[in-house]
Design a protein around this nucleic acid. Structure first.
Lengths: 214, 214
DNA sequence: CGGTGTGAAGAGCTTCACAGCA
DNA sequence: TGCTGTGAAGCTCTTCACACCG
Protein backbone atom coordinates (compact mmCIF):
# COMPACT_ATOMS: atom_id res chain seq x y z
CA UNK A 1 0.00 0.00 0.00
CA UNK A 2 2.00 2.98 -1.21
CA UNK A 3 -0.44 5.73 -0.24
CA UNK A 4 -3.25 6.11 2.26
CA UNK A 5 -6.08 8.61 2.60
CA UNK A 6 -6.99 10.51 5.74
CA UNK A 7 -10.34 8.75 5.61
CA UNK A 8 -8.75 5.30 5.78
CA UNK A 9 -6.34 6.24 8.53
CA UNK A 10 -9.08 7.91 10.51
CA UNK A 11 -11.31 4.85 10.28
CA UNK A 12 -8.44 2.64 11.42
CA UNK A 13 -7.68 4.93 14.34
CA UNK A 14 -11.29 5.53 15.23
CA UNK A 15 -11.16 9.30 14.82
CA UNK A 16 -12.60 11.96 12.56
CA UNK A 17 -10.75 12.37 9.27
CA UNK A 18 -10.73 16.16 9.51
CA UNK A 19 -8.98 15.99 12.86
CA UNK A 20 -6.40 13.65 11.45
CA UNK A 21 -5.73 15.97 8.51
CA UNK A 22 -5.50 18.99 10.79
CA UNK A 23 -3.10 17.19 13.11
CA UNK A 24 -0.92 16.12 10.20
CA UNK A 25 -0.99 19.65 8.83
CA UNK A 26 0.89 20.85 11.94
CA UNK A 27 3.81 18.70 10.83
CA UNK A 28 3.77 20.22 7.36
CA UNK A 29 1.99 19.52 4.10
CA UNK A 30 3.03 15.97 3.47
CA UNK A 31 -0.08 14.84 1.60
CA UNK A 32 -0.96 15.00 -2.05
CA UNK A 33 -4.41 16.31 -3.00
CA UNK A 34 -6.49 13.80 -4.83
CA UNK A 35 -4.16 10.99 -3.80
CA UNK A 36 -3.48 10.88 -0.06
CA UNK A 37 -0.35 10.46 2.00
CA UNK A 38 2.73 8.59 0.88
CA UNK A 39 2.96 5.92 3.57
CA UNK A 40 6.71 5.62 3.78
CA UNK A 41 7.31 9.35 3.79
CA UNK A 42 4.58 9.90 6.37
CA UNK A 43 5.99 7.25 8.68
CA UNK A 44 9.40 8.84 8.43
CA UNK A 45 8.14 12.35 9.14
CA UNK A 46 6.07 11.28 12.14
CA UNK A 47 8.91 9.17 13.49
CA UNK A 48 11.27 12.06 13.20
CA UNK A 49 8.88 14.46 14.90
CA UNK A 50 8.27 12.06 17.78
CA UNK A 51 11.96 11.43 18.22
CA UNK A 52 11.82 7.78 17.16
CA UNK A 53 14.75 8.21 14.80
CA UNK A 54 17.02 9.20 17.65
CA UNK A 55 18.86 6.82 19.91
CA UNK A 56 17.75 7.20 23.53
CA UNK A 57 19.90 5.37 26.02
CA UNK A 58 17.90 4.59 29.17
CA UNK A 59 18.78 2.99 32.47
CA UNK A 60 16.39 0.88 34.49
CA UNK A 61 16.87 1.03 38.25
CA UNK A 62 15.36 -1.76 40.33
CA UNK A 63 15.54 -5.14 38.65
CA UNK A 64 12.69 -6.97 40.34
CA UNK A 65 9.89 -8.56 38.38
CA UNK A 66 8.82 -5.29 36.87
CA UNK A 67 12.33 -4.13 36.04
CA UNK A 68 13.03 -7.46 34.40
CA UNK A 69 9.78 -7.25 32.47
CA UNK A 70 10.74 -3.81 31.22
CA UNK A 71 14.25 -4.96 30.30
CA UNK A 72 12.73 -7.77 28.26
CA UNK A 73 10.07 -5.61 26.67
CA UNK A 74 10.50 -5.77 22.92
CA UNK A 75 8.71 -2.55 22.16
CA UNK A 76 11.56 -0.34 23.32
CA UNK A 77 14.16 -1.07 20.68
CA UNK A 78 11.79 -0.40 17.80
CA UNK A 79 11.05 3.07 19.16
CA UNK A 80 14.61 4.24 19.49
CA UNK A 81 15.17 3.22 23.09
CA UNK A 82 18.30 1.34 24.06
CA UNK A 83 18.60 -0.16 27.51
CA UNK A 84 22.07 1.11 28.34
CA UNK A 85 22.23 -0.42 31.80
CA UNK A 86 20.31 -2.26 34.51
CA UNK A 87 20.96 -1.15 38.08
CA UNK A 88 19.98 -2.83 41.33
CA UNK A 89 20.82 -2.31 44.99
CA UNK A 90 21.12 -6.03 45.69
CA UNK A 91 24.78 -7.10 45.51
CA UNK A 92 23.61 -10.64 44.75
CA UNK A 93 22.14 -9.39 41.48
CA UNK A 94 25.36 -7.74 40.33
CA UNK A 95 26.77 -9.37 37.23
CA UNK A 96 23.70 -11.53 36.68
CA UNK A 97 22.43 -11.04 33.14
CA UNK A 98 18.80 -10.00 32.65
CA UNK A 99 17.58 -9.80 29.08
CA UNK A 100 21.20 -10.28 28.08
CA UNK A 101 22.42 -7.25 30.02
CA UNK A 102 24.47 -7.70 33.18
CA UNK A 103 22.97 -6.02 36.23
CA UNK A 104 25.22 -3.42 37.85
CA UNK A 105 25.25 -2.21 41.42
CA UNK A 106 23.73 1.06 42.55
CA UNK A 107 27.14 2.26 43.74
CA UNK A 108 28.14 2.83 40.13
CA UNK A 109 24.96 4.71 39.18
CA UNK A 110 26.62 8.06 38.58
CA UNK A 111 29.43 6.56 36.53
CA UNK A 112 26.98 4.59 34.40
CA UNK A 113 24.80 7.62 33.67
CA UNK A 114 27.81 9.69 32.78
CA UNK A 115 29.57 7.18 30.58
CA UNK A 116 26.45 6.35 28.59
CA UNK A 117 25.15 9.89 28.25
CA UNK A 118 21.81 8.82 29.71
CA UNK A 119 19.12 11.46 30.05
CA UNK A 120 16.14 9.17 30.70
CA UNK A 121 15.84 6.95 33.76
CA UNK A 122 13.23 4.35 34.66
CA UNK A 123 12.54 3.69 38.33
CA UNK A 124 11.11 0.27 39.13
CA UNK A 125 12.25 0.04 42.74
CA UNK A 126 10.11 -0.43 45.84
CA UNK A 127 8.40 2.75 47.04
CA UNK A 128 10.95 3.50 49.74
CA UNK A 129 13.92 3.50 47.42
CA UNK A 130 12.36 5.64 44.70
CA UNK A 131 13.08 9.15 45.97
CA UNK A 132 16.76 8.55 46.86
CA UNK A 133 17.30 6.85 43.50
CA UNK A 134 15.52 9.73 41.80
CA UNK A 135 17.73 12.28 43.54
CA UNK A 136 20.87 10.48 42.47
CA UNK A 137 19.65 10.14 38.88
CA UNK A 138 18.89 13.84 38.72
CA UNK A 139 22.19 14.80 40.31
CA UNK A 140 23.94 12.64 37.74
CA UNK A 141 22.29 14.51 34.90
CA UNK A 142 19.08 12.63 34.12
CA UNK A 143 16.32 15.05 33.09
CA UNK A 144 13.42 12.68 32.42
CA UNK A 145 12.17 10.01 34.79
CA UNK A 146 9.57 7.31 34.32
CA UNK A 147 8.39 6.26 37.76
CA UNK A 148 6.67 2.92 38.37
CA UNK A 149 7.04 3.10 42.14
CA UNK A 150 3.88 4.07 44.02
CA UNK A 151 5.32 7.37 45.25
CA UNK A 152 5.09 10.94 44.08
CA UNK A 153 8.64 12.06 43.36
CA UNK A 154 9.86 15.58 43.98
CA UNK A 155 12.28 16.86 41.41
CA UNK A 156 13.80 20.25 40.64
CA UNK A 157 12.45 22.41 37.83
CA UNK A 158 13.45 21.28 34.39
CA UNK A 159 13.14 17.59 35.21
CA UNK A 160 10.14 15.72 33.81
CA UNK A 161 8.55 12.94 35.82
CA UNK A 162 5.85 10.61 34.58
CA UNK A 163 4.24 8.25 37.02
CA UNK A 164 2.74 4.99 35.88
CA UNK A 165 0.28 3.39 38.23
CA UNK A 166 -0.60 -0.05 36.96
CA UNK A 167 -3.73 -0.19 39.04
CA UNK A 168 -5.24 2.95 37.54
CA UNK A 169 -6.08 1.20 34.30
CA UNK A 170 -7.74 -1.60 36.22
CA UNK A 171 -9.65 0.97 38.16
CA UNK A 172 -10.94 2.57 34.99
CA UNK A 173 -12.16 -0.83 33.81
CA UNK A 174 -13.82 -1.47 37.14
CA UNK A 175 -15.49 1.91 36.91
CA UNK A 176 -16.98 1.07 33.52
CA UNK A 177 -17.88 -2.39 34.77
CA UNK A 178 -19.78 -0.83 37.64
CA UNK A 179 -21.61 1.49 35.27
CA UNK A 180 -22.54 -1.43 33.03
CA UNK A 181 -24.12 -3.15 36.00
CA UNK A 182 -25.95 0.02 36.96
CA UNK A 183 -27.24 0.58 33.45
CA UNK A 184 -28.51 -2.97 33.20
CA UNK A 185 -30.50 -2.51 36.37
CA UNK A 186 -31.79 0.79 35.01
CA UNK A 187 -32.71 -0.74 31.67
CA UNK A 188 -34.66 -3.48 33.38
CA UNK A 189 -36.56 -0.99 35.47
CA UNK A 190 -36.97 1.65 32.77
CA UNK A 191 -37.36 1.38 29.02
CA UNK A 192 -34.80 3.24 26.86
CA UNK A 193 -31.63 1.41 25.85
CA UNK A 194 -28.58 3.08 27.40
CA UNK A 195 -25.87 4.33 25.07
CA UNK A 196 -22.66 2.30 25.05
CA UNK A 197 -19.19 3.47 24.09
CA UNK A 198 -17.70 1.36 21.34
CA UNK A 199 -14.18 2.74 20.97
CA UNK A 200 -11.01 0.69 21.15
CA UNK A 201 -10.20 2.17 24.57
CA UNK A 202 -6.53 2.61 23.74
CA UNK A 203 -4.42 2.84 26.88
CA UNK A 204 -3.41 6.05 28.54
CA UNK A 205 -5.84 8.75 27.62
CA UNK A 206 -7.83 9.10 30.83
CA UNK A 207 -11.16 8.97 29.03
CA UNK A 208 -13.38 8.41 31.98
CA UNK A 209 -16.85 9.76 31.26
CA UNK A 210 -18.17 12.53 33.44
CA UNK A 211 -19.91 11.35 36.55
CA UNK A 212 -23.43 12.62 36.79
CA UNK A 213 -25.43 12.76 39.97
CA UNK A 214 -27.59 9.74 40.66
CA UNK B 1 -6.69 16.64 59.48
CA UNK B 2 -10.47 16.37 59.75
CA UNK B 3 -11.40 18.76 56.93
CA UNK B 4 -9.71 20.08 53.82
CA UNK B 5 -10.46 23.02 51.52
CA UNK B 6 -10.71 22.85 47.76
CA UNK B 7 -7.75 25.25 47.66
CA UNK B 8 -5.51 22.85 49.58
CA UNK B 9 -6.58 19.81 47.59
CA UNK B 10 -6.16 21.68 44.34
CA UNK B 11 -2.65 22.79 45.26
CA UNK B 12 -1.74 19.23 46.21
CA UNK B 13 -3.13 17.87 42.95
CA UNK B 14 -1.75 20.69 40.83
CA UNK B 15 -5.10 21.81 39.46
CA UNK B 16 -7.38 24.81 39.69
CA UNK B 17 -9.54 24.90 42.82
CA UNK B 18 -12.66 25.89 40.87
CA UNK B 19 -12.30 22.80 38.70
CA UNK B 20 -11.92 20.63 41.74
CA UNK B 21 -15.04 22.08 43.33
CA UNK B 22 -17.01 21.71 40.12
CA UNK B 23 -15.88 18.11 39.73
CA UNK B 24 -16.83 17.31 43.31
CA UNK B 25 -20.18 18.98 42.82
CA UNK B 26 -21.10 16.32 40.24
CA UNK B 27 -20.95 13.77 43.03
CA UNK B 28 -23.24 15.84 45.22
CA UNK B 29 -22.83 18.63 47.72
CA UNK B 30 -20.48 17.05 50.18
CA UNK B 31 -18.69 20.23 51.32
CA UNK B 32 -19.54 22.68 54.04
CA UNK B 33 -19.39 26.37 53.22
CA UNK B 34 -16.84 28.24 55.27
CA UNK B 35 -15.24 24.97 56.39
CA UNK B 36 -14.33 22.72 53.50
CA UNK B 37 -14.78 19.01 52.93
CA UNK B 38 -14.90 16.39 55.66
CA UNK B 39 -11.96 14.21 54.71
CA UNK B 40 -13.32 10.88 55.82
CA UNK B 41 -16.73 11.41 54.28
CA UNK B 42 -15.21 12.69 51.05
CA UNK B 43 -12.90 9.69 50.77
CA UNK B 44 -15.83 7.38 51.27
CA UNK B 45 -18.01 9.11 48.69
CA UNK B 46 -15.30 9.16 46.05
CA UNK B 47 -14.36 5.56 46.75
CA UNK B 48 -17.94 4.51 46.38
CA UNK B 49 -18.40 6.41 43.13
CA UNK B 50 -15.22 4.93 41.66
CA UNK B 51 -16.16 1.44 42.72
CA UNK B 52 -13.33 1.04 45.23
CA UNK B 53 -15.69 -0.21 47.89
CA UNK B 54 -16.60 -3.20 45.80
CA UNK B 55 -14.67 -6.42 45.59
CA UNK B 56 -13.38 -7.04 42.08
CA UNK B 57 -11.97 -10.50 41.50
CA UNK B 58 -9.48 -10.46 38.61
CA UNK B 59 -7.47 -13.13 36.86
CA UNK B 60 -4.03 -12.57 35.41
CA UNK B 61 -3.20 -14.66 32.36
CA UNK B 62 0.45 -15.06 31.43
CA UNK B 63 2.73 -15.30 34.44
CA UNK B 64 6.02 -14.12 32.99
CA UNK B 65 7.96 -11.26 34.48
CA UNK B 66 5.17 -8.81 33.91
CA UNK B 67 2.43 -11.12 35.15
CA UNK B 68 4.47 -11.83 38.27
CA UNK B 69 5.08 -8.13 38.78
CA UNK B 70 1.35 -7.50 38.55
CA UNK B 71 0.55 -10.35 40.92
CA UNK B 72 2.97 -8.85 43.44
CA UNK B 73 1.76 -5.32 42.95
CA UNK B 74 0.57 -3.98 46.28
CA UNK B 75 -1.64 -1.28 44.88
CA UNK B 76 -4.39 -3.66 43.78
CA UNK B 77 -5.69 -4.84 47.13
CA UNK B 78 -6.13 -1.33 48.48
CA UNK B 79 -8.35 -0.44 45.54
CA UNK B 80 -10.74 -3.31 45.82
CA UNK B 81 -9.03 -5.71 43.45
CA UNK B 82 -8.45 -9.28 44.48
CA UNK B 83 -6.25 -11.51 42.38
CA UNK B 84 -8.54 -14.52 42.20
CA UNK B 85 -6.23 -16.63 40.07
CA UNK B 86 -3.03 -16.72 38.05
CA UNK B 87 -3.14 -18.62 34.77
CA UNK B 88 -0.29 -19.71 32.52
CA UNK B 89 0.04 -21.98 29.51
CA UNK B 90 3.30 -23.51 30.70
CA UNK B 91 2.58 -26.83 32.49
CA UNK B 92 5.86 -26.40 34.38
CA UNK B 93 4.42 -23.32 36.06
CA UNK B 94 1.29 -25.09 37.27
CA UNK B 95 1.13 -25.28 41.04
CA UNK B 96 4.09 -23.00 41.53
CA UNK B 97 3.13 -20.16 43.86
CA UNK B 98 3.61 -16.59 42.67
CA UNK B 99 2.88 -13.87 45.18
CA UNK B 100 1.45 -16.61 47.35
CA UNK B 101 -1.06 -17.75 44.74
CA UNK B 102 -0.58 -21.07 42.95
CA UNK B 103 -0.43 -20.76 39.16
CA UNK B 104 -3.10 -22.73 37.33
CA UNK B 105 -3.03 -24.09 33.80
CA UNK B 106 -4.80 -22.46 30.89
CA UNK B 107 -6.91 -25.60 30.41
CA UNK B 108 -8.95 -24.63 33.45
CA UNK B 109 -9.48 -21.02 32.41
CA UNK B 110 -13.22 -21.28 31.88
CA UNK B 111 -13.77 -23.11 35.14
CA UNK B 112 -11.72 -20.56 37.08
CA UNK B 113 -13.61 -17.60 35.62
CA UNK B 114 -16.91 -19.19 36.33
CA UNK B 115 -16.20 -20.34 39.88
CA UNK B 116 -14.79 -16.99 40.95
CA UNK B 117 -17.36 -14.82 39.21
CA UNK B 118 -14.57 -12.93 37.44
CA UNK B 119 -15.56 -10.11 35.11
CA UNK B 120 -12.14 -8.46 34.70
CA UNK B 121 -9.19 -10.19 33.06
CA UNK B 122 -5.60 -9.07 32.70
CA UNK B 123 -3.60 -10.32 29.72
CA UNK B 124 0.17 -10.36 30.19
CA UNK B 125 0.98 -13.03 27.64
CA UNK B 126 3.26 -12.76 24.63
CA UNK B 127 1.67 -11.03 21.65
CA UNK B 128 0.77 -14.24 19.83
CA UNK B 129 -1.23 -15.72 22.68
CA UNK B 130 -3.21 -12.59 23.49
CA UNK B 131 -6.10 -12.88 21.02
CA UNK B 132 -6.88 -16.56 21.71
CA UNK B 133 -6.73 -15.92 25.45
CA UNK B 134 -8.92 -12.88 25.00
CA UNK B 135 -11.49 -14.90 23.06
CA UNK B 136 -11.62 -17.54 25.76
CA UNK B 137 -11.94 -14.95 28.52
CA UNK B 138 -14.81 -13.28 26.70
CA UNK B 139 -16.54 -16.57 25.98
CA UNK B 140 -16.25 -17.44 29.66
CA UNK B 141 -18.01 -14.23 30.65
CA UNK B 142 -15.29 -11.64 31.15
CA UNK B 143 -16.49 -8.20 30.05
CA UNK B 144 -13.44 -6.03 30.80
CA UNK B 145 -9.91 -6.74 29.66
CA UNK B 146 -6.65 -5.02 30.48
CA UNK B 147 -4.18 -5.86 27.73
CA UNK B 148 -0.43 -5.56 28.24
CA UNK B 149 0.42 -7.56 25.12
CA UNK B 150 1.53 -5.47 22.15
CA UNK B 151 -1.51 -6.40 20.05
CA UNK B 152 -4.81 -4.75 19.31
CA UNK B 153 -7.49 -7.15 20.47
CA UNK B 154 -10.80 -7.57 18.74
CA UNK B 155 -13.74 -8.11 21.03
CA UNK B 156 -17.50 -8.16 20.61
CA UNK B 157 -19.63 -5.17 21.54
CA UNK B 158 -20.15 -4.73 25.23
CA UNK B 159 -16.64 -5.81 26.15
CA UNK B 160 -14.19 -3.10 27.24
CA UNK B 161 -10.53 -3.39 26.35
CA UNK B 162 -7.80 -1.12 27.62
CA UNK B 163 -4.34 -1.48 26.15
CA UNK B 164 -1.29 -0.53 28.15
CA UNK B 165 1.84 0.07 26.15
CA UNK B 166 4.74 0.51 28.52
CA UNK B 167 6.85 2.17 25.87
CA UNK B 168 4.38 4.97 25.22
CA UNK B 169 5.21 6.70 28.47
CA UNK B 170 8.90 6.50 27.64
CA UNK B 171 8.13 7.91 24.25
CA UNK B 172 6.35 10.89 25.76
CA UNK B 173 9.38 11.56 27.93
CA UNK B 174 11.68 11.28 24.94
CA UNK B 175 9.45 13.67 23.06
CA UNK B 176 9.76 16.29 25.81
CA UNK B 177 13.46 15.57 26.08
CA UNK B 178 13.85 16.25 22.39
CA UNK B 179 11.95 19.52 22.72
CA UNK B 180 14.13 20.58 25.65
CA UNK B 181 17.19 20.09 23.48
CA UNK B 182 15.58 22.00 20.64
CA UNK B 183 14.53 24.87 22.89
CA UNK B 184 18.01 25.17 24.35
CA UNK B 185 19.45 25.54 20.88
CA UNK B 186 16.76 28.09 20.08
CA UNK B 187 17.38 30.04 23.29
CA UNK B 188 21.07 30.22 22.50
CA UNK B 189 20.37 31.51 19.02
CA UNK B 190 17.42 33.77 19.86
CA UNK B 191 16.54 35.73 22.99
CA UNK B 192 13.17 34.99 24.68
CA UNK B 193 13.06 32.28 27.35
CA UNK B 194 10.84 29.40 26.24
CA UNK B 195 7.90 28.46 28.44
CA UNK B 196 8.29 25.25 30.40
CA UNK B 197 5.57 23.03 31.80
CA UNK B 198 5.95 22.45 35.51
CA UNK B 199 3.19 19.95 36.33
CA UNK B 200 3.63 16.62 38.06
CA UNK B 201 3.07 14.74 34.79
CA UNK B 202 0.87 12.11 36.37
CA UNK B 203 0.77 8.95 34.32
CA UNK B 204 -1.86 8.13 31.75
CA UNK B 205 -3.43 11.27 30.46
CA UNK B 206 -1.81 11.63 27.09
CA UNK B 207 -0.95 15.27 27.58
CA UNK B 208 1.43 15.73 24.74
CA UNK B 209 1.53 19.35 23.68
CA UNK B 210 0.50 20.24 20.16
CA UNK B 211 3.28 20.07 17.66
CA UNK B 212 3.80 23.34 15.88
CA UNK B 213 5.53 23.73 12.55
CA UNK B 214 9.25 24.38 12.68
C1' DC C 1 -15.47 35.93 57.68
C1' DG C 2 -14.24 31.78 54.88
C1' DG C 3 -15.09 28.59 51.61
C1' DT C 4 -18.59 26.04 48.76
C1' DG C 5 -21.53 25.64 44.69
C1' DT C 6 -22.44 27.35 40.22
C1' DG C 7 -23.99 30.54 36.17
C1' DA C 8 -21.48 32.78 32.82
C1' DA C 9 -17.30 33.93 30.31
C1' DG C 10 -13.32 32.23 28.22
C1' DA C 11 -10.09 29.01 26.11
C1' DG C 12 -9.07 25.12 23.60
C1' DC C 13 -10.27 21.40 20.87
C1' DT C 14 -13.15 19.09 17.27
C1' DT C 15 -15.85 19.05 13.30
C1' DC C 16 -17.77 21.11 9.22
C1' DA C 17 -17.48 22.47 4.75
C1' DC C 18 -15.29 23.93 0.92
C1' DA C 19 -11.48 26.21 -1.85
C1' DG C 20 -7.72 24.57 -4.27
C1' DC C 21 -4.55 21.50 -6.30
C1' DA C 22 -2.73 16.95 -8.51
C1' DT D 1 -12.63 13.90 -10.08
C1' DG D 2 -10.70 12.95 -5.42
C1' DC D 3 -8.61 14.24 -1.50
C1' DT D 4 -5.82 17.57 1.06
C1' DG D 5 -5.35 21.76 3.83
C1' DT D 6 -7.72 25.07 6.52
C1' DG D 7 -10.91 29.19 7.98
C1' DA D 8 -14.86 29.28 10.59
C1' DA D 9 -18.51 27.29 13.37
C1' DG D 10 -19.65 24.48 17.12
C1' DC D 11 -18.84 22.20 21.18
C1' DT D 12 -16.68 20.86 25.49
C1' DC D 13 -13.88 21.69 29.20
C1' DT D 14 -11.77 25.15 32.30
C1' DT D 15 -11.67 29.21 34.87
C1' DC D 16 -13.71 33.29 36.78
C1' DA D 17 -16.38 35.55 39.97
C1' DC D 18 -19.71 35.93 43.16
C1' DA D 19 -24.16 34.68 45.58
C1' DC D 20 -24.96 32.09 49.40
C1' DC D 21 -24.48 29.68 53.59
C1' DG D 22 -22.30 27.74 58.08
Amino acid sequence: MPTVSSEELAAAAGVNSAKLRKDFSYLGSYGTRGVGYDVEYLVYQISRELGLTQDWPVVIVGIGNLGAALANYGGFASRGFRVAALIDADPAMAGKPVAGIPVQHTDDLEKIIDENGVSIGVIATPAGAAQPVCDRLVAAGVTSILNFAPTVLSVPDGVDVRKVDLSIELQILAFHEQRKAGEEAEAQAGAAAPAERGDQGEGPDGDVPAVMPA
